[in-house]
């Protein structure tokens, strides 16, 4: 329909109005204020840059000596007259601990999140959520203490059983007992520690699943689990992936709990049930005081740089995924 809404009589001689741009003129105190907060924003940015560049800068001497062998050797390697350092065993150990942690932690966390968003009675939901958050607040050294004195003695029995009956899986083979202070036990502790992180994010994403589709599934005769499987889980898939990745970032960096449990060793090993292993953060923590020996300070700083890059990449990717799934865009992997 073409209705001419311009009914008002218009004087033809009226000049066409020129648009004016309103520029905000800040007073001096406002300028100072804006300058101040911008500076602090810039400061945060510079801080991250500084972390990366100082670690890279102070690790560089070690890299110059070791070359790419840093990534392909394990422990101190004697080259000519001086010992070179290689991070390979710690890198694989880090990945193994994180892997064990995710295998145990992620399903438990996702189930906990489902419980909080779908099963828990409304009245107790808030306090249960607070309990889970509290778990994230408990210092990792206390987790480590608990794991060392309470978890480890119990898990050793399980490890023995696994090494006896599941030895056909290469990871579970044991060639040199004892079975304490192992990557497996360290991974279990870290797995417990990442539960609150993964569960919190998953709960948030699950609770955003559209009510209309939930009701549609139920009205078609779905059980609660069928409803979750058709509506909640597909909707929350992106968030779940992001949450697990954030948990992974946390698992890769955990220092003290792992250091308390894991006995240091510089051998690349796939046998996660047996004594000994190493992660990057544990390597830094236990060798720092003895620096000046075989392991130079620069070697450790280079290790710190590697860990920094590893977690940075994983955390940024995970954040992007969680944010996308929160906006409902979903993820294609």
């Amino acid at each position: 329909m073409a209705i001419d809404l311009d009914l008002a009589p218009r004087r033809p001689q009226a000049p066409a109005p020129t648009p004016i741009t309103v520029t905000r003129d800040y007073s001096t105190p406002d300028k100072v204020f804006r300058w101040g907060v911008q500076a602090s924003g810039l400061g945060v940015f510079l801080l991250l840059v500084a972390i990366g560049s100082f670690l890279a800068w102070s690790g560089w001497p070690a890299f110059k000596v070791a070359g790419w062998g840093f990534f392909t050797h394990s422990g101190p390697v004697l080259v000519g007259s001086h010992a070179n350092f290689g991070v390979l065993a710690s890198l694989t150990g880090t990945v193994e601990v994180a892997f064990v942690a995710m295998v145990f932690g992620a399903p438990v966390a996702i189930c906990t999140a489902l419980f909080l968003s779908e099963y828990a009675p409304l009245r107790s939901r808030r306090s249960l959520i607070a309990m889970i958050d509290l778990a994230a607040a408990i210092p990792s050294i206390i987790f480590g203490l608990w794991a060392f004195f309470e978890l480890q003695p119990n898990v050793v029995g399980l490890s023995t059983w696994m090494s006896r009956h599941l030895a056909f899986i290469p990871f579970f083979k044991v060639t040199s007992p004892p079975l304490n202070a192992s990557i497996f036990i360290a991974g279990l502790v870290v797995g417990i520690m990442i539960v609150p992180i993964v569960a919190s994010i998953c709960r948030e994403v699950f609770s955003l699943a559209p009510a209309g589709e939930r009701e549609a599934a139920l009205a078609l005769g779905a059980s609660r689990w069928q409803m979750i499987r058709t509506v909640v889980l597909p909707f929350g898939r992106g968030g779940m992936i992001g949450a697990v990745m954030l948990g992974l970032g946390r698992a890769l960096e955990e220092t003290i709990a792992v250091t308390i449990i894991l006995a240091g060793s510089y051998k690349v090993t796939g046998q996660i049930l047996q004594h000994g292993g190493s992660t990057i953060s544990q390597l830094i923590a236990i060798n720092f005081n003895q620096s000046g020996g075989a392991l130079g300070v620069h070697d450790l700083l280079l290790c710190g740089f590697v860990l920094f890059l590893l977690t940075l990449v994983i955390n940024l990717a995970a954040s992007a995924i969680v944010n996308r799934s929160r906006s409902g865009a979903g993820v294609d992997l």
Binding site: V44, L47, A50, G249, L301
Partner: peptide, 29 residues
């Protein structure tokens, strides 16, 4: 202000900084 998107990303990235790295960073710097 200018660059607040970047800073928000940086804050997110930094909240995942390993605590051991924070210590090592102050040490090295």
């Amino acid at each position: 202000g200018f660059g607040s998107r970047t800073v928000r990303t940086v804050v997110t990235a930094m909240s995942g900084t390993p605590s051991v790295v924070a210590g090592v960073f102050i040490y090295s710097m």
